[in-house]
Amino acid sequence: MDYEALMEMAVQAGEIMLISGAEVYRVEDTIGRILEKSGLENRDVFVLTTGIVATLSDPCVPAITVVRRVSKRSTNLNRIARVNDISRRFCGGQITMDEARKQINDAAKENQYRFREKFVGYVMVTCFFAVLFSGGIRECAAAAFAGGFLALAVYGTSMLRLNDFCQNAAGSFVLALTASAFREYIFPGLNMDAVIISGIMPLVPGVTFTSAIRDTLNGDYSSGVARMAEAVVVALAVASGVGAAMMLVRMMGGAV
């Protein structure tokens, strides 16, 4: 068996999962299972939220070690599911290594939704969250529009290749401005708080924070702490975007 090719494939699979936002233990597990196919004695995998280290060694062959740095991360559940499925079929012996490598490369390129569909997703989240925060028809309408502008802002800043902090801050800035405009010109007496809270729902790191505590309970302390820091940074970005918009509105003489 070509151990180097196996190693390359395992790390590639792990990298795609990590970039797509999979949990650290899931990545370790997948790489470990693929490496298990080598039948070598020592297979050590160490994954952090920002990188992968894997080693294959045996008394009879020279050790192979691969280090992979992962810097950019954004959630893509489809890729996680695809890679997971490919590695399961590979481990089950249903596909060969070449087929698995090809499919993993395909999975890395696959994009399911176009911007149009994502836009609808943003509008759905903000509009229906307004219902959950006991908003009326007016709040839902305002939140839906705010969500649309939020999607445009996030898309625009990602085209400019700005970092996540700026993307979140710009998105929530635009969102809070839209909400204030609605209250000023269209629905006086609008419940701004409900609109803004529903509007930031697509950005806000509630899931990250919950996963941080889950990781910690699982014994993955480094990943737990890293996620918690990530949640705080995202929340800071969102809050400063909203705060800046509020300040601007106040300066222009609007009610907040």
């Binding site: 559940l77 489809n78 695809r82 399911q112 609808v120 943003y122 759905m124 989240v125 729902m201």
Partner: peptide, 13 residues
């Protein structure tokens, strides 16, 4: 519906 929309944002299959 909100969760349905959020799954699209997260690229769920």
């Amino acid at each position: 519906l909100a969760v349905f929309g959020f799954s699209i944002i997260l690229d769920a299959p």
